[in-house]
Design a protein around this nucleic acid. Structure first.
Lengths: 338, 338
DNA sequence: TTGAAAGCGCTAACAT
DNA sequence: ATGTTAGCGCTTTCAA
């Protein structure tokens, strides 16, 4: 069952004018009689006329919709970023189309292709954890699709990015742990293919080096939670915690990982801060209410979304191809309880 | 900067055939030479041809995209429902366009209108807390836009719905509280305009009546969190808790309300279960890790999404107008800790 | 088996 | 100031 709204042609017929006149009146063009315009506007209003964006899109090659691809909406961080994007985009008359990659590269490629096949004007994306190459995005970008990355960016990709200073914050929190006397800091993080993973690792290592602690690669655990069962992660964590000498702190990346680890620790019988200290990335405010409290790194999600949206719209609306790209680096907040 | 993909016309020119032939070949029509077809398919494949859905939409009055409107994505329940919708819809070749109403009727009307103006084939919606009338949805529905409600439904609206048995579960948990010796049960819930609010209230009252406890309307608090500051809610809660005789239990509706109350209680110095018992709707798994534990009502979000999607696609793909509508009622899970 | 042409709803260049 | 026409990419008669 199709559904159909009133068209410009319907108005034209009803009022005995041509459809171009109607089109012009609706666009507030100046080359239309005041009387006619009033008549048309009134009729349109009354009959609840809405221009068909599909047709408009065909014409302009612009759909006023923007694709947003995130790993998963269940991760509150992404939901918050989307609110930021929406805020900016909404005022400018664009609409967002949200898609999830579920951390799967294949799914990401499919959804991006689908979106791109001429139904979006631009794309804001945070890549999936397991993505290794970005040919699909590069191809589309080369064909003229504006793209802005946030949080997880594709390397060697000439376009705008909005990120946080991962290296710096990783350095800071690692050093904070060291100051508290922790020396065996377990770093639980995403796939090593991810930009954020690498940047955070650098900061982590720097802090160790600065404080004369040898880097032990056994203390870095890449958690592929997107494709793993909780049980497997739990088992891995157990093994890690049984390492000699035992880890005395955890620094975890990402909302999902942080909460996952948090719940596993409890089950496995390790308690914070007695057995270990715990610092993790998380934008879930609930975690502040948790007992035991843990130190949290909170990303300025809303601002990141707004920034990404601004940059994308700039790209879309600029007449000539952009040559110089911006990398906006924001600072996260470290929420230390107690 | 517009971006353009290869079109059917490009293929036609390159191969020296007409665009209708290309169109047919691409659709695996039988009225096309085997040779020609092969040539065309190969060329299309090689050049990464993707049909322009905008153009196709214009033609068919079908866009293969489905609008999904939820109050807010930050609420995990809705993110979970969307995953369910996506799962079903994806296989059938549809795409979802997600929008948020932010619990504001005005925003809901705008976004629905926007979506509806011929760029979606159907709509799945859970209405915003403060919505009082549904004329905008009714009008669109009358014009032929298929709509399916989930969770929060519009009353007197002839269409498919997917809900949980609100009355029953409210009855059950209220009775559980009574069994534990609680008699002054504070029911904190959404706007009274919402279907779920009314249904849950009925169950709550029934349990009281059944157990010979007089209903005290001061114990029902409609929390308009969408438009309120946290401080105001906190103040209200404080006042409620100072009521004589003091409430000895709380039964709260909805993820946002439950977590909000949870955090306020802590701040206000009331502890569970010493001062009061606490049962709340929540689909946030983190709440299971909270200390103190509270009893939780968990909705089958994923299933609700799947069911809603199935129903909508059925509506979209049926040739004749549907007359008989289904109300699917699922059962939530009560997670009692300790 | 294939091509030509019309039309989906809209805009924009060109006439009048 | 208004109408006519072409065209956006695609599908679908209708002819050949």
């Amino acid at each position: 069952m199709k559904f159909s709204s009133i068209t410009i042609m319907d108005i034209a017929k009803a009022l005995g004018v041509s459809k171009s006149t109607v089109s012009r009146a609706l666009q507030n063009s100046h080359e239309v009689g005041a009387e006619t315009r009033k008549k048309i506007l009134a009729y349109a209003q009354q009959h609840n006329y809405e221009p068909n964006p599909v047709a408009k899109g065909l014409q302009h090659k612009q759909t006023f919709s923007i694709g947003v691809v995130v790993p998963e909406l269940k991760n509150n961080f992404f939901a918050q970023v989307i609110e930021g994007i929406d805020e900016v985009v909404y005022q400018k008359g664009y609409q967002i189309i949200i898609s999830q990659s579920y951390e799967k590269p294949q799914r990401e490629i499919e959804t991006v292709r689908h979106l791109a096949s001429r139904s979006i004007d631009g794309l804001i994306i945070s890549v999936s954890a397991e993505s290794k190459e970005y040919d699909h995005l590069k191809a589309l970008n080369k064909m003229g699709l504006p793209i802005v990355f946030f949080d997880r960016v594709a390397e060697n990709f000439q376009t705008h990015q909005v990120v946080i200073n991962n290296q710096k914050v990783a350095y800071t929190v690692t050093e904070m742990l060291i100051r508290k006397g922790r020396r065996r800091i377990l770093h639980i993080t995403h796939s090593s293919d991810l930009s954020i993973t690498r940047e955070r690792l650098v900061g982590y290592k720097q802090a160790l080096a600065k404080n004369g602690i040898a880097f032990d690669e056994r203390l870095v655990y890449n958690c592929h939670y997107g494709t793993m069962q909780v049980e497997a992660i739990e088992a891995d964590l157990m093994k890690l915690m049984q390492m000699k000498p035992r880890p005395d702190a955890i620094f975890s990346s990402g909302d999902r990982i942080t909460t996952l680890i948090y719940s596993c620790l409890e089950k496995l019988g390790f308690s914070v801060p007695k057995h270990l200290a715990f610092v993790g990335f998380s934008n879930n405010t609930m975690i502040d209410l948790m007992n035991p409290h843990i130190m949290v790194i909170r990303q300025p999600a809303h601002e990141m979304g707004k920034a990404a949206a601004e940059l994308l719209i700039q790209l879309i609306e600029s007449r000539k191809p952009t040559k110089v790209f911006e990398r906006q680096v924001l600072d996260p907040l470290i929420v230390a309880h107690e």
